[in-house]
Nucleic acid binder design. Structure first.
Length: 393
DNA sequence: CGCAATGATTGAGT
DNA sequence: ACTCAATCATTGCG
C-alpha cells in the first residue's frame, strides 16, 4: 500500500505524457472529453466493479494488453526511478534474524529426548539412564521401557508427519508467492532481494507455527516422561546386599558419615547404583539416624559386630604377613579408638576394598549431628558408647 | 487397607 | 556444589 501511494504521488509530480496516459486514466478522459465527465467516471467505476467478475481468460487478455501497451516501458522506468529513491528505507527494515533461543531450546530438548534426532538413538539412551536410575529388576523395567519407547515413537511419528506437512505447505506457499512476484515484476520493479525478503517473512510465519508444534511435542514428551520415568513413581528398594554395603560404610564412619567423591563412586560400583543414589542414601540416612538415634541402635550394633568381625579377619591375615606391625601404625583414624564411635576398634580396613578413603576423622564424637539435635531423650547411652562396648568384648 | 520404611525431589542455607 | 529438612510417592508388610 505504501509503495503504491508513493508511486502515485511520484507520477503526479512528473507531469507529461506518462502521467496522462497511464498514471491517471481519469485525467486522460478529462482531457479528451471534458464534456461528459460524469459518464466517464461511471464507465470506469463499471469497469472496476466488473474486474472481479471477469474470467481468467479475460484477465489474462487484459494483462497482456497492459504489458504490450506502448507506454508500459515508460511506466516501468518511472517506477524504477521511484524505487531508487525509496529503496533505502526498505533496506533498513530487514535483518534481525538470529536463531531464536526458545526454538533452539525446544530443538535441543527434542533432540535429547530422541524425538527429532536419528531413529531410536536418544530414546534408548534416556531409557537406559532411567533404567539405571531405577536400579531395580531388569525384567520389570524393560517392560515399562518398551511401553515408554512405543509411546515415544508414536509422538515422534506424529511430530514428523506434522512437520513434513508444515514444510510442504510452507514451500508451496512460498512458491506461489514467488511466482506471483515474478509475474508482477514484469509490470513493476521487484528486485530479487525483495523476493528474498518476502520469502523470509513467510518462513518466519511458518516457523512460529513450527514452534507451536515443537512446544506441544515437548509437552507431550514431558508428560510421558513424568508418567513413565519419574523416579519417585518407579522407586525400587535397593537389594539387600547394597543396603548392607551402605550401612556398613555408614556405621563404620559414624562420626563423619560423609563419603568423599571417590568413596561414593566405590560404593556405587559395589551396590550397582549411581553415585547420586549413594548421595541420596547417605542424605536420607544421616537425617533419619539423627532424628531417631534410638531406633537405629540395634542396626548400629549389628553392623558394628559385622565390621568388627571383618576387621578382625583382615587384621588376622595382616598380622600373619607382618606380625611386628603396630595396630595403630600411624593411621589418623586410630587415635579416635577410644570413644568417637567411628571405625570400631580403630580398624578402618573395611573389607579391604579400598574404601578407607574417608575424610579425616573429627576429634569430636558425631559432631555432624549436633546442629539441631539436643541429646536425644530416646537414645539411651548414645550409639558410640554402646557400639564400642558391644564390640570390645 | 493402613502404616512404616524408603528412595527421590525440592527449596533453603552455606 | 553440597547438605539439611521437609515432603512426595512408592514399596512391602501385617
Amino acid at each position: 500500500m505504501d509503495d503504491q501511494t508513493r508511486m502515485m504521488t511520484g507520477l503526479t509530480g512528473l507531469g507529461g505524457l506518462a502521467q496522462a496516459d497511464v498514471g491517471d486514466p481519469d485525467s486522460v478522459r478529462k482531457q479528451q472529453s471534458l464534456g461528459q465527465p460524469q459518464q466517464d467516471i461511471g464507465d470506469i467505476l463499471q469497469q472496476i466493479m466488473a474486474i472481479t467478475d471477469e474470467s481468467l481468460d479475460e484477465a489474462q487478455a487484459r494483462k497482456h494488453a497492459l504489458n504490450c501497451h506502448r507506454m508500459k516501458p515508460a511506466l516501468f522506468s518511472v517506477l524504477c526511478e521511484i524505487k531508487e529513491k525509496t529503496v533505502l528505507s526498505i533496506r533498513g527494515v530487514q535483518e534481525e534474524d538470529p536463531p531464536d533461543p526458545q526454538i533452539m531450546r525446544l530443538d535441543n530438548m527434542l533432540l535429547a529426548e530422541g524425538v527429532s534426532g536419528p531413529e531410536k538413538g536418544g530414546g534408548s539412551a534416556a531409557a537406559a539412564a532411567a533404567a539405571a536410575a531405577a536400579g531395580g529388576s531388569p525384567t520389570d523395567s524393560s517392560i515399562e521401557h518398551s511401553d515408554y519407547r512405543a509411546k515415544l515413537a508414536q509422538i515422534r511419528q506424529i511430530y514428523h508427519s506434522e512437520l513434513e506437512k508444515y514444510e510442504q505447505a510452507c514451500s508451496e506457499f512460498t512458491n506461489h508467492v514467488m511466482n506471483l512476484l515474478r509475474e508482477q515484476s514484469r509490470t513493476r520493479p521487484i528486485s530479487p532481494k525483495e523476493i528474498e525478503r518476502m520469502v523470509a517473512i513467510i518462513h518466519r510465519k511458518f516457523s512460529s507455527i513450527q514452534m507451536q508444534l515443537k512446544q506441544s511435542t515437548c509437552e507431550a514428551v514431558m508428560i510421558l516422561r513424568s508418567r513413565f520415568l519419574d523416579a519417585r513413581r518407579k522407586r525400587r528398594n535397593f537389594n539387600k546386599q547394597a543396603t548392607e554395603v551402605l550401612n556398613e560404610y555408614f556405621y563404620s564412619h559414624l562420626s563423619n558419615p560423609y563419603p568423599s567423591e571417590e568413596a561414593k563412586e566405590e560404593l556405587a560400583k559395589k551396590c550397582g547404583i549411581t553415585v547420586s543414589q549413594v548421595s541420596n542414601w547417605f542424605g536420607n540416612k544421616r537425617i533419619r539416624y539423627k532424628k531417631n538415634i534410638g531406633k537405629f541402635q540395634e542396626e548400629a550394633n549389628l553392623y558394628a559386630v559385622k565390621t568388627a568381625v571383618d576387621a578382625a579377619n583382615v587384621s588376622a591375615q595382616a598380622s600373619q604377613a607382618n606380625s611386628p606391625a603396630t595396630p595403630n601404625s600411624g593411621s589418623p583414624g586410630s587415635y579416635s579408638l577410644s570413644h568417637t564411635g567411628d571405625t570400631y576398634l580403630g580398624l578402618r580396613s573395611l573389607n579391604g576394598e579400598g574404601l578407607n578413603i574417608a575424610p579425616p576423622l573429627q576429634p569430636q564424637a558425631n559432631s555432624w549431628q549436633d546442629t539441631t539435635n539436643p541429646p536425644s531423650v530416646t537414645s539411651p547411652p548414645g550409639p558410640p558408647g554402646s557400639v564400642h562396648s558391644d564390640t570390645s568384648n
